[in-house]
Computed example of a mutant assay.
Amino acid sequence: MATMDDDAIADAFVVQVPPYSVPVILEEYDSRWPDRYAAEAAAIRAALGATVLQLEHTGSTSVPGLAAKPIIDMLLIVADTTDEAAYLPALEGLGYTLRVREPDWYEHRCLVRRVEDGAPHSVNLHVFSPVLGAPEIERVLAFRDRLRTHDDERAAYERTKRELAQRRWKYVQHYANAKSEVIEEILARGLETRKSRPID
């Protein structure tokens, strides 16, 4: 959920930054999206074994009823994202490609699979470690959970997405940046809810 300018985008990409000068295409919620996540999750767990500390379906495709780009977002927690040898070769064996490396932002890594490259469906796999990435892990899960449980906020977020999808963007990150205001508003309430939960 980081807001990035063009220089930060260029620095983070492992390969040349792909342009995104095409419309953002949102699809109505597809009940197959959870099954696609489950298939990817099973393959990742089989490939990485105990290296997987946590694996979650995140992003808009994880929220029933929410229109989204048809890309499955996943959150993978490993002990240390900087130890790429511990997880990257196995994920590459599944067809994932390391797209983004961000040492200055929680040592985040993002790997992708794309339909246009022969994958059965498109995936963004975000990788964090539990210590360095803890703040962003909390934010991602709080935002997802808030949208899953508050219809009015989910509808407001979808309206924003649909309005922004009418514009063309140089990079997909610009589209993501433009959603940041409404995301932060919803997220603030989601984080407050998580803080107020009783401890089991």
Rank of each mutant, 00 (worst) to 15 (best):
L125R: 09
P18M: 13
G133P: 04
D104E: 14
V112R: 15
V17Y: 07
L164W: 08
A165G: 02
Y171G: 07
W105G: 07
R36G: 00
T61L: 03
L75D: 04
K161R: 04
D200K: 12
R144I: 02
I77E: 06
R162D: 04
L164K: 05
W105M: 09
G59A: 00
Q173H: 14
H108Y: 12
D83M: 13
M74Y: 06
I186Q: 02
L111Q: 07
I137G: 06
T58R: 00
H126F: 01
A68E: 07
R109C: 10
E92V: 10
W169C: 02
G59P: 01
A41V: 09
D73Y: 01
D5H: 06
H150C: 14
G95A: 13
R101H: 15
P18Y: 12
D152I: 03
P89I: 08
V140D: 10
R159N: 08
E136T: 01
Y37P: 04
H57F: 05
L111M: 15
Y171M: 07
E181V: 12
L53N: 09
R189K: 14
A176R: 12
S196M: 14
L164Y: 07
R99D: 12
V22H: 15
Y29R: 11
V52A: 00
V24P: 07
P198Y: 04
S122V: 02
P19F: 12
R109G: 11
S129C: 02
A50C: 00
L91F: 07
Y87G: 02
D200L: 15
I199V: 13
G95F: 12
C110N: 05
I25N: 10
R167Q: 14
R45N: 04
A67S: 12
S21H: 12
Y175R: 09
T51E: 12
R101I: 07
L191K: 12
A79R: 15
A176Y: 07
S196T: 13
L48D: 02
E158A: 09
E116L: 09
E102R: 13
R99C: 07
G93V: 05
A43E: 04
F143N: 09
R101A: 15
L141N: 03
T3N: 08
G93Q: 09
V22I: 15
Q173N: 14
C110A: 04
L132A: 15
I44P: 00
Q173K: 13
A188C: 03
A10F: 12
Y37L: 09
D7S: 11
R36D: 06
Y29A: 14
R154S: 01
V140A: 09
K179P: 05
D80R: 13
V131F: 10
A119K: 03
I9F: 08
T82G: 08
P89Q: 11
D83Y: 09
A68I: 03
V15I: 11
I137N: 08
A119H: 06
P19K: 14
V123S: 05
P198E: 15
S122L: 02
Q16S: 15
G118F: 05
Q54G: 04
Y157S: 06
E107N: 15
L76I: 01
T149I: 00
A86L: 05
A46T: 13
Y20V: 11
T193M: 03
D152N: 02
P135M: 10
A86R: 12
G49F: 03
I186F: 03
P70N: 09
P130E: 02
E56V: 00
L76G: 01
E181N: 05
D35M: 14
Y37I: 08
L141I: 10
